[in-house]
Nucleic acid binder design. Structure first.
Lengths: 255, 255
DNA sequence: GGGTTGCGTTGCGTTATATGCAACGCTCAT
DNA sequence: ATGAGCGTTGCATATAACGCAACGCAACCC
């Protein structure tokens, strides 16, 4: 809509691939060097872009700070966190919280496993959308046409033999998840890792977030992990209640 | 430099404070609503801004993804991580990696303590610059005039009784840190938490990053933590060697 | 239920503003 | 020394961003 801003913002994903010098930026934007320079300078003033010692540009620190603040302002996250921590206390495994936004699913909170073997994931990292249990829950709640559109636009990387292979299979899985009200990922992303997930709903019943418990095979088998399902669902329901205002937050200590 | 981009980018920190509607954004930018609308639309197209169900705008998911990618492209981080993990294996405490950029110090990596009591911190969060051990190391390496300018511009919040109280005290501390080549934070940020830190240097000897080991009093006393100093310095030196190309990366397993 | 207020949204003419050019200056390597 | 390559500057032109005013649409209140 606004050409100048559009061009300036296009620089960010470009730099996300790695540092680049003025010429490279100008070329990839298809503009004159002087134009690119002015845009970069503006981005620099706002701290979104940093000029390293070899004169090349890369993404700046303000970006982290912004992402950080944005995260801390998410109210679901704030409400959910103590519940996630409590669940982690009880079962010891990694607990994740994720939301859907504009075609992406991303983790917004994580409580680390207390077992020495830990899985790799990071807050803010987009989730493997076709296989993750939380992603299935979040997508399953979208209106059917949107679900179809998204499913057909997605790619289906075969992380493992049990990954969702294509759109029809994914849509079938979403229907199942929608009906049963919970989801799993049994080695669909990494061979040895299983997850159980449950939805968190707002006052209107719409799914606003999803949470999951994940553990590697070497710690517990898939069957053992599934025995945690009731606990996970109860936790998710508690969060839903508090989020939608039905249940006031419980004080952890009396006055 | 570029008015339009400048205005658009000013929206981001504004939204970081919390969601806002069109009118609020327009007012705070001092522009007409239609102008604000166009800017917001452009930001929206790039995913930096999200429109929530109540029509208000807040920061978008792309921001997380960008910050994430930016972080993973930092080569110091990549080189340092296995060393940090190894140190954590040996001592069990929380290990941090931080860099300086344009007046801010921020954590770019963290390996969690293996003790049940953990300190609060998050990757990407700006560090308490006047007290953190890593911050002292990074600032101590700046040229003297810059150091002074920064020190005088800073605020000195008294987190605890042992926090750095003002600019002169801070500058004195920096001089000391610069000479001894390592730094500590003994309860300067949180009463019960101590840190020991060492600098990571590039080929030209300039400090490019700093790493620290942190632990609460309840786990180890400050004196006990200080006995780890040689290990911390050795780890930092190993990273420096690898980063500056002097030492080739060691294979963890043979062929 | 009609009127009103408070939003977001649209189209348009004007003018400020971003643009590309060409020339300059610098560093580095030949 | 000399050239190539890159970032930087000033400037005239034209484009694209601006504010305005009018519209559409709710919600709200009398």
């Amino acid at each position: 809509m606004s050409q100048t801003v559009d061009r300036a913002l296009s620089i960010l994903p470009l730099l996300a691939e790695g540092p680049a010098d003025l010429g490279q930026v100008a070329d990839r934007l298809g503009v004159h060097k002087s134009t690119a320079l002015r845009l970069l300078r503006t981005l620099h003033e706002h701290g979104l872009v940093y000029r390293q010692s070899d004169q090349r540009y890369r993404l700046g620190a303000r970006l982290f700070a912004l992402a950080q603040e944005a995260m801390e302002n998410l109210d679901v996250r704030e409400i959910a966190h103590p519940h996630l921590a409590r669940l982690n206390e009880r079962c010891g495994h990694t607990v994740h919280l994720a939301v859907y936004e504009e075609g992406e699913v991303l983790y917004i909170d994580k409580v680390e496993s207390r077992y020495p073997v830990r899985m790799y994931s990071r807050i803010g990292k987009p989730v493997a959308i076709t296989v993750a249990a939380v992603a299935k829950l979040l997508l399953a709640d979208l209106p059917e046409p949107e679900r179809r559109t998204i499913a057909e636009r997605l790619e289906y990387p075969l992380y493992t033999a049990r990954s969702t292979p294509n759109a029809p299979a994914f849509l079938r899985e979403l229907t199942k998840v929608r009906e049963q009200g919970w989801a799993t990922d049994l080695g669909g992303h990494e061979e040895s890792i299983n997850c159980v997930a449950a939805p968190i709903r707002g006052a209107d019943g719409r799914v606003v977030a999803a949470m999951s418990v994940s553990a590697p095979n070497v710690v517990v088998t898939a069957d053992e992990l599934l025995t945690l399902l009731p606990q996970v669902r109860r936790t998710a329901d508690d969060i839903s209640g508090e989020y939608s205002g039905r249940t006031p937050a419980k004080d952890t200590v009396g006055p």
